[in-house]
Computed example of a mutant assay.
Amino acid sequence: MDIKKKLGMAAMSAVLGITLIAGGTFAYFSSTEVTNNTFAAGTLDLSVNPSTIVEVENLAPGDSIIRSFELVNNGSLDIEKVTLETDYTVHDAHNNNTEDFAKHIEVEFLYNVDKLDEVIYRTTLAELKEMTPDAINQHIFYPALGEKGLPVNSLDDFVVKFNFVDNGEDQNEFQGDSLDLKWTFVATQNPGSQK
């Protein structure tokens, strides 16, 4: 073998040896552990009992109706505040209304069954429909629920008095009329916290 071939073979052997040595220096111990983690969201579940608060016929100016209902937190998260969205439809029996029937239906939110004379807030259905959620919470639900809101698995009693206001004037236009009232109670959670 000539010298060039011997030098080439020696160079190849050296490269192969360095590669094997270098490859051996990357060996290490290892250990592996797997964790299984879960993120589960809580639930807000507000219910109203009974679901129909008032259903009455043959109202005359000056009549009043008192009804009670419960707000119940069936969820897994505390409720910080409750707001109320009001909507209604007036059915004008004789197509002669010049005023909104709901302006003549006054609503009094009362503290509880034992103290029916203590009014939390008084307004008409027409005014209630125009109120902002924050104003409703401030005037109606905050005085009753306070800072604690509605904790998980708790309920709070509410009493409402509806008055067909006798304004001392001619209210004949409302004879035979009816009003369908829809109340939507909206619950919001307490602010998030470090878990």
Rank of each mutant, 00 (worst) to 15 (best):
125 L>W: 04
70 E>Q: 12
161 K>D: 03
38 T>Y: 10
137 N>D: 13
187 A>I: 05
105 I>E: 13
84 L>F: 01
2 D>L: 03
167 N>G: 04
78 D>W: 05
40 A>K: 09
1 M>A: 10
11 A>G: 09
57 E>A: 15
189 Q>D: 13
117 D>V: 07
88 Y>C: 04
52 T>L: 11
106 E>V: 09
174 F>Y: 11
6 K>L: 10
189 Q>E: 08
118 E>Q: 03
99 E>P: 03
100 D>Y: 07
82 V>I: 10
173 E>I: 01
173 E>A: 05
172 N>I: 13
47 S>K: 09
36 N>D: 05
186 V>Y: 07
149 G>Q: 02
106 E>F: 07
56 V>A: 14
54 V>E: 14
132 T>R: 04
122 R>K: 15
143 P>R: 06
167 N>F: 04
171 Q>S: 01
42 G>E: 03
109 F>Q: 08
36 N>K: 02
5 K>F: 05
70 E>K: 12
161 K>H: 02
53 I>Y: 00
121 Y>H: 12
110 L>F: 13
19 T>F: 15
191 P>V: 15
93 A>M: 11
75 G>Q: 02
28 Y>F: 03
64 S>L: 11
151 P>M: 06
32 T>K: 01
90 V>D: 06
162 F>R: 10
3 I>R: 10
25 T>W: 00
79 I>Q: 00
158 F>H: 04
109 F>W: 14
69 F>H: 07
20 L>Y: 09
21 I>E: 00
77 L>Y: 07
22 A>C: 07
69 F>S: 13
29 F>Y: 10
59 L>A: 11
45 D>N: 14
133 P>K: 06
4 K>P: 07
19 T>L: 14
45 D>A: 02
148 K>V: 00
135 A>W: 14
150 L>H: 00
141 F>S: 09
123 T>F: 00
84 L>R: 08
4 K>H: 12
177 D>S: 03
164 F>P: 04
90 V>K: 09
74 N>S: 12
55 E>W: 05
22 A>H: 01
137 N>A: 10
3 I>D: 08
166 D>L: 06
187 A>Q: 13
70 E>L: 13
90 V>N: 07
146 G>A: 04
152 V>F: 03
102 A>F: 03
69 F>E: 15
